[in-house]
């Protein structure tokens, strides 16, 4: 077999490419070996409310702890004010990758600090 004639640049590109491919393959093999088949398991975390101009914004972090991706994740956040009234807000996360997280915001007219917040997932579908 004749030895390929290459200059240092070509050898460098080849070396770098091999490294890149091997690491991608290694990563994918590791992932497929460790990843299970658990359905989406979505956990919500409510962040500290912030006052904006005329409304209050509440950051919501949705984390998917399952091994499957959830699509169209519909989240509802209910604010129970001190006066006993309920204010609802909802949002939809288009895709929540497995073991991934997405951040979103919901807004309220009344101050969430003067009441209690509750978030829940209404539904999602299999992509």
């Amino acid at each position: 077999m004749k030895k390929p004639k290459k200059n240092w640049l070509e050898w460098m590109v080849f070396g770098f490419s091999s490294l890149l491919i091997v690491s991608v393959i290694g990563f994918l093999v590791y992932e497929s070996a460790t990843i299970g088949d658990a359905p989406p398991d979505i956990r919500l975390r409510i962040g500290p409310p912030e006052a904006r101009s005329g409304y209050f914004a509440v950051p919501i972090e949705a984390m998917n702890e399952g091994d499957q991706t959830a699509e169209g994740v519909h989240i509802e956040v209910v604010l129970k004010t001190a006066a006993g009234e309920e204010e609802r807000a909802d949002l939809e996360v288009q895709f929540l990758p497995r073991r991934g997280a997405r951040e979103a915001w919901v807004t309220f007219k009344s101050d969430p600090l003067k009441g209690s917040l509750e978030a829940r997932v209404l539904g999602y579908e299999k992509p």
């Binding site: 390929p4 070509e10 590109v13 490419s17 091999s18 490294l19 890149l20 491919i21």
Partner: peptide
């Protein structure tokens, strides 16, 4: 007229550059 080793090297380079 490339030998198979060159063909493999070329393919690896193309895939690596593709990733990049």
């Amino acid at each position: 007229d490339a030998s198979w080793s060159e063909v493999v090297i070329d393919s690896v380079e193309e895939m690596g550059l593709g990733l990049l």
